[in-house]
């Protein structure tokens, strides 16, 4: 199965625009951009994306909380999730993995490399799943 639809949650409009370019134009993915966790949770009621990409620090509902709520929906229980954050100390990474993320991408990201990074995480996740 190839990666097609990504649910992307980021509160910062600048970063959303640049990620949209990096993932839609460079990567060729279909991107559903949400400005907040609650928007993402609302979206998940209708459709199931292939992958969830989340900022960690957001006002109101942060990334981990958003993921927890998304996971409560049966259709979202197995969708791989990646956190994007500048906080990548071992203890922080451990926390993200313990709440069900498959990987972490460091901010700031390189717009021309982001799609490739996500593709590589995606293929690793899939190959592990079917082993």
């Amino acid at each position: 199965m190839s990666l097609n639809t990504i649910l992307y949650v980021e509160d910062e409009p600048d970063i959303r625009t640049i990620a949209q370019l990096a993932l839609e134009t460079v990567g060729g993915f279909t991107l559903i951009s949400c400005a907040s966790g609650s928007e993402a949770v609302a979206y998940a009621q209708h459709t199931t994306p292939d992958l969830i990409l989340l900022d960690v620090m957001m006002p109101e509902m942060d990334g981990p909380e958003t993921l927890r709520l998304l996971r409560e929906r049966p259709n979202m229980a197995d969708v791989p999730a990646i956190f994007m954050t500048a906080k990548v100390q071992p203890s922080e990474v451990a926390e993200y993995l313990s709440i069900g993320a498959v990987d972490v991408i460091a901010k700031p990201f390189d717009p021309l490399m982001l799609a490739e990074q996500i593709n590589s995480i995606w293929s690793r996740t899939k190959s592990q799943k079917y082993k």
């Binding site: 910062e12 600048d14 620090m57 006002p59 500048a86 700031p108």
Partner: peptide, 24 residues
């Protein structure tokens, strides 16, 4: 804190690595 966090995350992707590092 929130303002600095945003700046650290965005400045690097927009070509301001030094500013991003300072903010971080």
């Amino acid at each position: 804190y929130r303002k600095l966090h945003k700046l650290a995350g965005s400045a690097g992707s927009f070509g301001y690595p030094q500013l991003s590092a300072q903010a971080r």
